[in-house]
């Protein structure tokens, strides 16, 4: 779907976030970017989204930049707007009226299990539900590429597992490509078809791990041999990337 070649990113303050990043993203896969905090994986994700240009190197799209959905670490909702209006935002910015957008908004809310919450305000929702709204907003335009920047990092373990399962189901239903930034080995293995392991700052991909497992995963998968092995190799790769091998 897209290729990053020799991408460097140096910020205005001189900090180098990425150095020689090479990464291929395949059509329809679930790709995790795994690495320690501050390794530039979020920076890479933002550049793929078009928020900021590489200092050197290039990002090439096979068929042009598709519709992109972005989910931040926090829900990042507009507190003054209802759930409905928050999900409406991308459609509204694309020039669709409330009435035109309404079926798509309802559909997006259905997808994340928030039927009946359209009129609620973000303040009235739990952290997990706010994140669902955020995901519904990202899905409202039916993006071919979904970018997620540690979306569940601030949630408790139970909510997080529930959302992980929902995310896998959503991906299955929508057939979108997902790039998922995380610093959790277990989360990345549970979700991904493929994991790109980042070195500490300045970041680049030091290892790629294929997770051979069924597309639809459940609690059994968490206890399986495949899962344990993949976690093992991801952990080893992460340690190697951080120079502690």
């Amino acid at each position: 779907m897209l290729t990053l070649r020799g991408v460097d990113k140096v910020f205005a303050n001189g900090a180098q976030a990425l150095a020689g990043l090479d990464l291929d993203v395949r059509e329809g896969e679930f790709l995790s970017l795994l690495g320690p905090s501050g390794c530039g994986k979020s920076t890479a994700l933002r550049m793929i989204a078009g928020l900021g240009e590489p200092t050197r190197g290039a990002i090439a799209w096979r068929a042009g930049r598709p519709e992109v959905g972005f989910v931040f670490q926090d829900a990042v909702l507009m507190p003054w707007a209802s759930v409905f209006d928050n999900v409406w935002l991308p459609l509204r910015l694309a020039g669709q009226s409330r009435a035109q957008a309404s079926p798509k908004i309802e559909a997006a809310l259905d997808l994340v299990g928030l039927q009946g919450f359209a009129r609620a305000y973000p303040r009235e929702l739990s952290g997990g539900m706010r994140m669902r709204v955020s995901i519904a907003r990202a899905l409202a335009m039916r993006p071919a590429l979904l970018l997620m920047d540690e979306p569940f990092a601030a949630l408790d373990e139970i909510t997080r597992q529930k959302l992980n399962d929902d995310l896998l189901r959503l991906k299955q239903e929508l057939g979108a490509t997902v790039i998922f930034v995380t610093h959790s080995v277990f989360e990345s293995v549970y979700l991904s078809d493929r994991i790109a392991v980042f070195s500490a700052r300045p970041g680049r991909v030091t290892a790629e791990i294929e997770v051979a497992a069924p597309a639809l995963r459940n609690d059994d998968f968490r206890l399986s041999q495949t899962y344990a092995q993949a976690c093992r190799s991801a952990t080893d790769a992460l340690h190697a990337a951080m120079g502690e091998a």
Binding site: R46, A49, G50, L51, V68, F70, F72, D74, V76, M78, L89, P90, R92, L93, A94
Partner: peptide, 20 residues
């Protein structure tokens, strides 16, 4: 982050002012 989101969806400055 919301400003980034508006930028991502290519919102005009006017829309950004009014809606955000």
């Amino acid at each position: 982050n919301l400003i980034d989101l508006f930028e991502l969806y290519k919102a005009s400055r006017w829309k950004q002012l009014v809606l955000l």
